[in-house]
Design a binder for these strands. Structure first.
Ligand code: NAD
Ligand code: NAD
Lengths: 222, 222
DNA sequence: CTAACTTTGTTAAAAAAATAACAATCTTTA
DNA sequence: TAAAGATTGTTATTTTTTTAACAAAGTTAG
C-alpha cells in the first residue's frame, strides 16, 4: 500500500503503534543535533529491521533520499504531522485522584500540544485543588462545561465502576476521543475513539514472563 | 502447538498479551457468580472470535468440557496460575514522584500478590515520606538494600535521564524483571525481562486516530 | 564528469496470526 | 439409556505482518 492509494485504504494498527516509537527516537536524534540517518541505522537503534521501518513509512509518503537516507528534522516533522502533533489538542480529565493528578501535572503533554483545559472530581478533597494551574471542579458541572467548551479528548482516571457513566457524559458532550486508564472496556459509538492504557495488564505480562523463564519450558517468542 | 509440546516451544507474545484481558473478564464473571461460560459467550463479551480464545487457551492446556464449556472458577484459577498470580511477587519502586506515588498507593497490586517492599528517591521531599505504609528511602541505599532482600521486580518511575543507571543497579542487585514507566528503551542482559508502560505512546496513537478520522482518508484497520 | 557506492521505495516471499471447519465427545433431555 | 444438541480442541485455510530482494535513483570521491 502506498500513500497514493484510493480513499478507504487502511493503515494497519500495528504500524500506527510503532509511529510514537519512531517519533521518540527521532526527537532524541534531533536533540543530539544529528542531521541525517539511514533506515538501517535508525532501525538498529530501535531494534527492528530496516525493511519494516521503510515499509511503515511508505504508508504515508516518500520522506527519504536514495543514497543519502533521511534528514532527521524533515522526517520528524513528517512523523509529527502524521501523529497530529502539529496542532493543539484540548483535553479534560475526570477523576483527580492519585493517577489523575500525576497525569495532570506531567509537563511533557503540554509541551507537545496536549492541553488540559479542566479537571473534575466527585469528592471534596480533590475539588477546589489547584493542580499545575488547573482548578478541579465538581463533576456535576462536567456536562454543562462540555456544552460551552470544544474539547477533543476526555481522560478518565476514575475507578472502573464510574468509568462508563463518565464516558457517556463525555460522548454526549461531543468529545471525539477517550483516553481511559480504568481497567474496563468502555462502550462508545463508532465515531468516538477509545484508547485504553493497560497499566495492570502490563504488570501481568511481566509476571507471566518471570514465571516462565529459565526453565526451558514455555518461553516467549517476540 | 499444544501444551504437550517439547521443551523449547514458544508461546507467541500476542497470546500472552491477551491473557490479562481474559483474566479480567473471568474475574468479573466470578464476581457476578456466573458458574459456566462457553468460548462463544466469553469471546463475544471480549470482542474477539471464539476460535481465537480457544486457540489461545490450547497453548496452555485443556480447560474446557465438550458440550458444556468452561467452569468460570476453574478457568480463572488456571489463567491466574499461568500468569503467576498464584504466588507473591516482591517489588521495589524507584522514583517516588507523582506517578510513582500513584503506583505505590494503588491497592489492586497488593490484592493480587504484588508486594512493594520498599521505595527509593533522590530528593528529600519524597524521602522519609510514608506512602501507604512504605517509607521512601534515599536512593543511595538501593544497592545495599538489594543485597539483603530478595526482590523480583524493580519499578522505575524516575525521569528518563536516570532510568538506565537505576536499571543497572537493579540488574546488579539481582532483580529478574523491570517495570519501566520512563519513556526510554532500557538496555539489560537477556535474563532480565523489561516491560515498558507506554503511557505517552498511547496518547499519540489516540491523537493519530482523531486526526485521521471521518475524512475517508487513512482510516485505521484493527 | 564518471564510476563506484549507498540507500530508498516497492514488489515478492516467508512467517506469523487469525479465522474457519470439523471430528470427537460431553451434556442434556426424554 | 439413547438420541439430539452443544461445545471443545485441533487441524486446515485465509489473512496479516514481517522480512527479503532488487531496480531505480541519488551521493560521493576521484
Ligand atoms: N494508580 C495506579 O497505579 C493504577 C494502576 C492501574 C490502573 N489504575 C486505574 O486508574 C484509575 C484511577 O486510579 P487512582 O489510583 O488514581 O485511584 P484514586 O482512587 O486515587 O482516584 C480516583 C478518583 O476518581 C474520583 N471519582 C470517583 N468517582 C467519580 C466520578 N463519578 N466522577 C468524578 N470523579 C470520580 C475519586 O474521587 C478519586 O479522586 C482507576 O480506575 C484505577 O483502577 C490505576
Ligand atoms: N506522570 C505522567 O503522567 C507520565 C506519563 C508518561 C510517562 N511518565 C514517565 O514516568 C516517569 C515519572 O514521571 P512523574 O510524573 O512521576 O515525574 P516526577 O518528576 O513527579 O517524579 C520523578 C521522581 O524521580 C525522582 N528521581 C530523579 N532521579 C532519581 C534517581 N536517580 N534515583 C531515584 N529517584 C530519582 C525525583 O526526585 C522524583 O521524585 C518519568 O520518566 C516520566 O517521563 C509519566
Amino acid at each position: 500500500m502506498t500513500h497514493n492509494d484510493a480513499p478507504g485504504s487502511k493503515i494497519p494498527m500495528v504500524v500506527i503503534k510503532r509511529l510514537p516509537v519512531y517519533q521518540r527516537y527521532l526527537s532524541e536524534l534531533q536533540k543530539k543535533e544529528v542531521e541525517r540517518i539511514s533506515s538501517g541505522e535508525l532501525a538498529a537503534k530501535i531494534g527492528i529491521t530496516a525493511s519494516q521501518l521503510r515499509h511503515d513509512l511508505s504508508c504515508f509518503g516518500n520522506f527519504g533520499q536514495q543514497g543519502y537516507g533521511y534528514k532527521v528534522d524533515d522526517l520528524l516533522f513528517e512523523v509529527n504531522k502524521i501523529l497530529g502533533l502539529d496542532h493543539n489538542i484540548y483535553m479534560v480529565l475526570i477523576g483527580a485522584g492519585n493517577l489523575g493528578r500525576a497525569v495532570l501535572s506531567y509537563p511533557n503533554f503540554l509541551s507537545r500540544g496536549f492541553i488540559f483545559k479542566a479537571a473534575f472530581d466527585q469528592k471534596q478533597p480533590p475539588v477546589n485543588l489547584n493542580i499545575e494551574g488547573i482548578l478541579v471542579q465538581p463533576v456535576r458541572e462536567l456536562e454543562s462545561y462540555l456544552k460551552e467548551q470544544l474539547i477533543d479528548i476526555g481522560v478518565i482516571t476514575t475507578p472502573a465502576a464510574n468509568a462508563q457513566e463518565i464516558a457517556d457524559i463525555l460522548v454526549a458532550g461531543g468529545v471525539r476521543g477517550i483516553w481511559n486508564f480504568a481497567p474496563i472496556s468502555l462502550k462508545t459509538p463508532e465515531n468516538v475513539v477509545v484508547e485504553h492504557v493497560h497499566i495492570s495488564e502490563s504488570l501481568l505480562v511481566l509476571s507471566y514472563q518471570l514465571c516462565h523463564k529459565g526453565f526451558g519450558r514455555l518461553p516467549v517468542s517476540y
